[in-house]
Design a protein around this nucleic acid. Structure first.
Lengths: 338, 338
DNA sequence: TTTATTTACGGAAACGGTTGCGAAGAAAAT
DNA sequence: ATTTTCTTCGCAACCGTTTCCGTAAATAAA
């Protein structure tokens, strides 16, 4: 345990505890020579102020929480990196909580956050059906929240997101223009607004181009998803274009196509929301809608810190849109196998 | 701010603060009816004890730190997941710190951890040259540490690792048996013990099978790495087998081969340490040495909590070996293009 | 009935910084 | 010389919980 504290410094310096405390915080009330004496000894004794004493007194922990559905996913990993980068330059610490796409866990986490352990929260919702009471309770405790990507429309808090509707439209349009006649959209949630928006973009593009297409509602069970996709691609009237809303579903599509002997892009064209670094190295390389994950994390954290510094007023329609980018590759190509 | 505290509960119940505190901790000193009254009101008022007051008083924060070089990497992401899973079942919170492969950041983080903010640390070193004084100082503050993967041999602390020497040997042997005559090993560090062990396995396999082979020392600068690999594969006497110690180098090899028009595996066979979920979908699919990342995280966290519960005595040679697994795929195949 | 032992709870001192207020001494103003 | 104003620092309360210790009442033992 770190046993060097203010009291010891004060005794050693023949000063009071309060003077030492103020000197270390570079208060104007303390003379320069005294400050220097204090700094010197503090450094010599490697004094580290007890963060818990400070948090208790100041009602501020200099800690934020990041609540996300999963971490083994390039998008969220990059977002964490963005958040952590900003946090450390601000002198904040980052607690991480994984919901594993399970609402019950999200509720439990939100509940534990009510204790005042953190000054603010950056979060991305899990995909299952959402009752947002646990988040409302957090709001009522005056714990600022900022959403990113998987936002909650029902809650008044800043939201950092991508242009999901347009991206869904563009992805679908891209498939159509690549020659697809019968499409399918793989989605992970019927409650997340980002899923609904991507889906709406898909549907509107279908109508705009007068194409046929269905929607497959996947979940968090990988095996079940695999079977659903297998069924989809096994039928007589299987789609010749698939738009996956998350990369893990695209990966499943690749596996299913291998198993069924379907060629991409000749038999089925594939496009997906994804931040896979290996997208260009896949066989065939995968056409993606890539989100600026790192920047979204940075932006969300930046907004949160502005809120914590009271330099920010939240409005109901408070959102930052960072554009996703279409990266055309072979999986939606004309058909040249390489 | 959460303003319902013990004092308010006590006033409401006509009890003393100490009694309420004891009741909530289910102390034997408190009668059952009193406990029930306390529990009922605490639940009704949604009482959440202030964790900072508790930490200050008990000198325990129920928080651990995870210090890793990066997060946008399947290995570390899965390890975090393993650590977080164990932590939450134990009621602990997880702080995350990224060194970005920068020793200076690692030192700064270690220094900030001296404050007693965390009860223990799970860490994986960054690759640059290591002076371990900052870690020794943490040890001296009685903050338990557990290493995983990128361990420090100079420090007496539990280490969770894979059989790096054998894996290096096996990987090299696999390339040799696939027909490679001239090998190259891409490594990221000259100071990490895991790199040295993988390298030693490589060298011993070369000697055992009487093959020629060099070592390319890469760093954390992706562009520089790319150029080094490009130079390696551009020469007249380029290798026909490459063993990458981390997946990002294997990805670079793929890109370089595309640029140079080299065919994998016909011209160059590639094997790599990697936890890429898309390894089997790459073009060609990548032969990997996969580490049990999730289990390594779980194991490291489990050991740390045993230490925190004083049920664990550390010995200098304290290490857990979890075996890595060779997954043979096309990148080291006989040459069939698919 | 008196004395020893439980049982159930309250008082108060921690834990280590932070901060409002007051006060002593020096400097400046009158 | 006296009063006022700074400058610099100390005292003590405070944040919310935990825990040592003490004590009154209830029960058991003598």
């Amino acid at each position: 345990m770190n046993s060097v504290n203010l009291k010891q410094l004060a005794r050693e310096l023949n000063l009071s505890v309060s003077t030492v405390s103020r000197a270390l915080r570079d208060s104007w009330e303390i003379s320069t020579p005294t400050k220097q004496r204090v700094f010197a000894l503090a450094k010599k004794m490697n004094f580290q102020p007890n963060p818990y004493a400070s948090s208790l007194r100041k009602h501020r922990s200099r800690t934020i929480a990041v609540v996300i559905p999963e971490v083994a996913n390039n998008f969220f990993a990059l977002a964490i990196k963005g958040i952590e980068t900003v946090a450390r330059t601000k002198g904040y610490h980052v607690l991480i909580y994984l919901t594993n796409e399970d609402v019950a866990e999200e509720v439990a986490i939100a509940s534990s956050l009510q204790s005042g352990r953190v000054d603010g929260v950056v979060l991305s919702l899990c995909g299952s059906a959402q009752d947002t009471r646990h988040l409302v309770e957090l709001q009522q405790r005056n714990i600022p929240m900022v959403f990113f990507d998987r936002v909650s429309e029902g809650i008044t808090a800043p939201k950092v997101m991508t242009n999901d509707y347009e991206s869904g439209f563009v992805a679908t349009e891209h498939l159509v223009k690549a020659g697809c006649r019968r499409l399918a959209h793989l989605t992970i949630s019927m409650s997340l607004s980002i899923s609904l928006k991507r889906q709406q973009g898909y549907m509107d593009a279908l109508r705009r181009y007068d194409r046929d297409g269905g929607i497959v509602h996947c979940g968090s069970d990988d095996d079940a998803n695999y079977r659903m996709i297998r069924t989809l691609l096994s039928g007589e009237d299987r789609p010749d274009g698939v738009f996956a809303s998350v990369e893990k579903l695209a990966v499943q599509v690749y596996h299913v196509c291998r198993e069924l002997g379907l060629r991409i892009p000749e038999d089925v064209k594939v496009i997906s929301f994804s931040n896979l670094v290996t997208a260009s190295l896949l066989n065939p390389s995968l056409t993606t809608i890539a989100q600026p994950a790192f920047d979204m994390g940075k932006e969300a954290a930046t907004i949160l810190f502005r809120r914590l510094e009271k330099k920010y007023i939240v409005t109901p329609e408070d959102r930052v849109m960072l554009p996703a980018k279409l990266e055309v590759r072979e999986s939606t190509g004309a058909g040249s196998s390489r």
